[in-house]
Nucleic acid binder design. Structure first.
Lengths: 331, 331
DNA sequence: CTGAAAGCGCTTACAG
DNA sequence: CTGAAAGCGCTTACAG
């Protein structure tokens, strides 16, 4: 690859002049500029981003840490992040942790050591201390989806309203025995949805039906097992709320195998709708969060923080997006 | 962040000694080593990867370029790549192009300019020239899923066998009027599946039923439209082969709306099974490719190429994985 | 066994 | 308006 030196030699000027001409960073005589441009073009010069980064202490790269990609809302959010980051001249470096705190720690350490100027994370909550250290060391950190640490900025959906609204919606549809399939209450989104569910159930004078399984929370199997458990325990069950789509798929499967008609006998709603819901044999009603938009916002936020001068970093902000009910065939 | 200089000062040695001690790159007196380690630990020293990269001309990062993440086989492959890359000490930088050649070009240029030591790509086929240039400039390039350029190494599945086998399987199930929903023949996987389908259909003396729509090829809508078209055109149609799962979802939807019973009246098989197939209300028979393994292999291959000395780079290799029929309820 | 020095490819005060 | 020089944080011949 051609370097500044090569361009400088060809254009018969100093490398500093080439740098200035190419970056438009101070006045350069038009004639000189023309020569420099021509030389750069002829050699196919492309700046070495590592050298730029080293020199400027910036890498124009953000790291994104998510628990998984597959069949989860994160792949949609990631597209938003990547799109926005690219339009702002940033590259995206992603890691997925499978919700393993040790893997997460390793990713974060790698990112901090010069890999990234900023980090967007949907974390496990086990590395909050490390995240604060990273933030303190001058790397911008934004939480998304999961607000596990109050002292760091975040972009989330209003999970409590989401859980609450879903119950009310089902109630108006005539459901009176509504079960919840959820995940670890240590994770903010599950906690929020749980609280919203409980609040609404209490307010409406209904019974609370919770469920759990030994499977990973974010799985088809978890949804399947929990649905069977709820159906066994609550003969009159007439609605199931699943925290995420993939659990909803498990629920549908369980209902089908038991020949329970959906939505006639049991209705189903997912609290984290993503694209798959509308594509099903029986399409799934869900609370949709603006994943793409949230991703763009997160990217924007972290890049703003990166670009702010050290003495006027924006203060911690928490942004919450509303979710929207999209009614389909499962209710 | 602490630098070598800080550690050196604390340990009362030269920075070069610190470097040697920490990297075990030549003998250092045990006493000295101990002091250096202690100092490094005390300061929480972490090497600046940019500086290392600049100095060594290596970044220990591979770039991955895919058309999309969402509801596609790529998210599974990506996990394999990331896992393997991490275990070999490499970070993964990913870009998604939405199959837009211009976006792809931009990604590739960014990666070549010091962002990555190697590139794994499922490309559009419109930037083959650029890819060869990148390869020639010393950056390892491996194609995956799509072999668009013979002169670059690749990891693919045996698409032709996949299409061929699917037809024979359906034939043995009693199907005689088998339609294909596919994608652009400019892309290797679609071309391969098309060829396999045609070959088998001819061999068995059946009719060829192809379909097309104006929707993006890798979409629910494409599957839905094409299914309707096939059903309209071929009243006796008894089987549909869909190139990818998401098209299969569209097919199921079309069949459901027409109240056509699957598998009794029409059978369905997807030629690129990924995790969603087994989670459906009517689970989907599919040809599964070992996505995770392919990802790991691709990462391994590109990293081997990166690590090989310049004078003995491995020659171009093409690796093809077999696909496996997983029978489920849709056939 | 360890230090001094050069250099990776840039940017940016500092002169002039 | 442009050049010479310093320096970002490392690694690695070269001495000794």
């Amino acid at each position: 690859m051609a370097t500044l030196k090569d361009v400088a030699r060809l254009a018969c000027v100093d490398i500093s002049t080439v740098s200035r001409a190419l970056n438009n960073t101070s006045y350069v005589h038009p004639e000189t500029k023309k020569r420099v441009y021509a030389a750069a073009k002829e050699l196919g010069y492309q700046p070495n981003v590592m050298a730029q980064a080293l020199r400027q202490g910036k890498r124009r790269t953000i790291g994104v840490v998510v628990p998984r990609l597959h069949l989860a809302i994160f792949s949609e959010i990631l597209q938003g992040i990547e799109e926005e980051a690219r339009s702002l001249g940033y590259a995206t470096l992603f890691c997925n942790t499978e919700d393993n705190p040790a893997t997460e720690k390793e990713c974060l350490n790698r990112l901090r050591n010069g890999f990234a100027d900023g980090i967007i994370i949907a974390g496990t909550g086990y590395n909050n201390r490390l995240l604060r250290d990273i933030q303190a060391s001058g790397i911008a950190v934004v939480q998304m989806v999961r607000r596990q640490e109050k002292r760091l900025s975040s972009i989330v959906a209003d999970y409590e309203a989401c859980g609450n609204d879903a119950v009310h919606f089902l109630y108006e549809k005539g459901c009176r025995e509504i079960g919840l399939i959820n995940g670890s209450l240590d994770l903010a989104p599950y906690k929020g949805r749980h609280d919203g569910y409980c609040k609404a159930v209490k307010q409406l004078g209904l019974n609370e039906y919770l469920s759990q399984s030994d499977y990973p929370v974010n799985s088809f199997e978890h949804g399947y097992e929990c649905a069977n458990q709820l159906l066994d325990d609550v003969p009159k069950l007439d609605a199931i709320m699943a925290a995420v789509d993939i659990q909803g798929l498990g629920v549908i499967r369980a209902l089908t195998e038991r020949k329970i008609k959906m939505p006639e006998q049991v209705k189903l709603i997912s609290l984290t709708g993503h694209a798959v819901g509308r594509m099903l044999e029986t399409s799934m009603t869900s609370m949709e969060m603006p994943a793409h938009e949230m991703g763009k916002k997160a990217a924007h936020m972290v890049i703003d923080e990166i670009n702010a001068p050290a003495d006027q970093k924006p203060s911690t902000q928490h942004v919450s997006f509303g979710t929207v009910l999209v009614e389909r065939e499962s209710t």
